[in-house]
Write a protein that binds this DNA or RNA. Sequence first.
DNA 1: CTGAAAGCGCTTACAG
DNA 2: CTGAAAGCGCTTACAG
Lengths: 348, 348
Amino acid sequence: MSRGTGYEKTKRNANVSDVAKAAEVSVATVSRAFNIPDAVRPEVRKRVLAAASSLGYSPNAAAKALRMQRTNIAGVVIPTLDYAIYARMVNSFQNKLSAAGHMVFVATTGWDNAHIFERVRPLIDRGAEGLLLVGAIEDNDLREYLKDKRLPVVTSYSYQINDTVPSIGFDNYAATAELVDYLIRLGHRRLAMISAPTKGNDRQRARVQAFRDTLAENGIDETDIVLERHQALTNGADAMREIHAQHPEVTAVVCSSDVLAFGALAECKKLGIHVPKDLSITGFDDFDFSALLDPPLTTISVPASEMGERAADALLNALTTSRAIQSVKLETNLVIRKSTSHPPKAAK
Amino acid sequence: MSRGTGYEKTKRNANVSDVAKAAEVSVATVSRAFNIPDAVRPEVRKRVLAAASSLGYSPNAAAKALRMQRTNIAGVVIPTLDYAIYARMVNSFQNKLSAAGHMVFVATTGWDNAHIFERVRPLIDRGAEGLLLVGAIEDNDLREYLKDKRLPVVTSYSYQINDTVPSIGFDNYAATAELVDYLIRLGHRRLAMISAPTKGNDRQRARVQAFRDTLAENGIDETDIVLERHQALTNGADAMREIHAQHPEVTAVVCSSDVLAFGALAECKKLGIHVPKDLSITGFDDFDFSALLDPPLTTISVPASEMGERAADALLNALTTSRAIQSVKLETNLVIRKSTSHPPKAAK
DNA sequence: CTGAAAGCGCTTACAG
DNA sequence: CTGAAAGCGCTTACAG
């Protein structure tokens, strides 16, 4: 069947024995020439390296892993790569790790975080020695499993002060509270929120909670208007339309992401609502395009690549020293741009 | 030193022997119970599976790989994950592969494609059995290496009719030519292009070439205005400012990506240039936000996730059958929106 | 249907 | 400084 144009292996790869033979030494010496160069006479080492290179030899990773009980593989599990903020974190995570000679497996759960354990297990089974996850672990089986394996794990995107699993993230509650507080000080009294789904997502829950608490603290305790929508431009637009139709008194819309905010902004344009004169809109993430929107988006900037880097360092360190990982709290920034202002006079 | 809060392995993982002992069978039977269930008496199989599960056994991937000479790992090498279009492709690629029980290593080269070989080698050395790359392979050493290893490789983003390496991509030249042609038919005679760097990047070169050829074919053969800028919003803005200052006669700017186009669009707003009345602008990629820009962007939509899926299928198939991979040409679409129109009267 | 044994390709005590 | 040998944890002929 096969026309010889395919991928059938013709010659097997060279192995230590081949190199040993070619260099007229033992396999032990070959191994040492690569791994403990100083333990081999320079002249011999040179011979070995030359033989290896002429045979195109490179050590078999599986054999090495089996023997050393060490894979040098890390894993990262995220909702999706198709969202800039995760992609960015993974990008810096993998850059750091690959510079340190580690490989990284990536797995995605989709937006439904419920099945994260199903994604984690194959990663571990296939050799991941450390793990980067997104958000607090809410699955107790997973928690037990990870503890049992004594695997270095760090969660990201939300800083957890009292979790046994170390986290490298920021304070979603505080960041949102600061933002809502800012809106209230501008004079807004009727606010709505467009959030990403809160199910199985502690970050979103923290943001919604901060929204509600901050309103309450300021004596604004009418029924909260909180719409949950999946991260997508069109969902931001739809939610905006709904708010406009059902709650025309609203003067500020807090969006849980720049994506949602961008959708809302675009919808306002269609509806003839002027932002920020008629309505203030805020985002979360500070995507690069957010500064260029019309109007530029007031939002919260988030240390995505820093999380990836720090997580990589933490994992690397844990793998080397076996010492526990310390949680680290990173800062966010409220970036005030032109999509927010005082509410219209009539609404005050 | 270690306070016992770390990650030192206390108990080793269960292995086949442990399970065999617990189930009172041989290791061969344990292996069969997992891999050739029908070759084991149902009753025995049940005993084995129970023992395995109570011991938390899962097969050691390295040992398995060593024995089977098969890792079930694929690799993908892209410029960066921090660019939606690559992230999306990797996302669908990895989803398909993980559904088929494969893991995926991802490596990034940064925008400088020159060092791709350095990224590919570790991937292969660490066990990747198939590879997804971006763009035509321009490094002959890499080409030789890949051929020598007889590794299934597919390149993406540009369809190569006559390459020995199979590609799953689209026709960058034709897509751009169609777009430029459309602008010319609108009446534009003075066009400029903002391209991503063409060095080591056949896709960008094809687009620039199409731009030049199409102008020439239409008798517009003044000096071409082509600016090369790295993919970034601010670079699009800078380039736009430069074009405006040095070539005020230009009535249409063809951008090689939506990112660049978005930057240019934003800059026009600052400069008081009305798009499309004073100037037409086009993008490439059709990002989801491009339809929501003001004005919505005329651009070319590109099958990013389809490339990832197809590549995964192709690799999976090649790994299974050893048959050669067939190149596939995917379609792009010229999406005409409001950022383009006839040139201003005065310019005609 | 089951088991004993070989072997995948490494690294590392151990002995010299 | 070097080599012979053991063993990491699997799977699979081979024999029964």
